[in-house]
């Protein structure tokens, strides 16, 4: 213990003072990060302005099916590795009622109806995205 105490004085690492003092360019970096965050948010806002009416279902990056939100539907989506997601469309809203994945995050994502809103199931690699019919063809090419 004594030898440990002896070394504290020589502590050259940036804790202690370094943890709270030191630095100086912190404000710059934080401001930069904030601005970058708002720029990304702005891009997102520009991309998705209109209301959507089509639900596009992709598995592993491939568009497998599109549904009209105005038509009620109840289907099972087959994801990768035998995973399944139970899709329900009703009253212009789409959501997942059941999923085979362990954490069920996709089920907890709730209902989507506006353009640009998404539900993602990472384990099954299933992506649901609401699109606007006019821009549907454009998005389909990605």
């Amino acid at each position: 213990m004594t030898e440990t105490l002896g070394t504290i004085r020589e502590e050259k690492h940036a804790t202690g003072k370094g943890a709270t003092g030191k630095g100086g360019k912190d404000g710059l970096l934080i401001t930069g990060l904030l601005i970058a965050g708002f720029v990304i948010a702005g891009l997102y806002g520009l991309k998705y302005r209109q209301g959507g009416d089509v639900l596009q279902v992709s598995v592993a990056g491939e568009v497998v099916q599109t549904y009209l939100l105005e038509q009620d539907a109840d289907v099972v989506i087959r994801g990768v590795n035998g995973g399944t997601n139970h899709l329900h469309i009703e009253g212009g809203q789409a959501w997942l009622t059941e999923a085979s994945c362990p954490d069920k995050l996709c089920v907890h994502m709730g209902r989507i109806s506006g353009e640009g809103q998404t539900i993602v199931c990472l384990p099954n690699q299933v992506v649901l995205e609401v699109l606007d019919a006019q821009s549907e063809t454009k998005s389909g090419m990605k």
């Binding site: 891009l43 992709s58 998404t118 993602v120």
Partner: peptide, 13 residues
């Protein structure tokens, strides 16, 4: 890399 969808932009925000 896996999903190839720009839908992820919303989550990034």
């Amino acid at each position: 890399v896996l999903l190839r969808t720009q839908a992820l932009l919303g989550y990034l925000v």
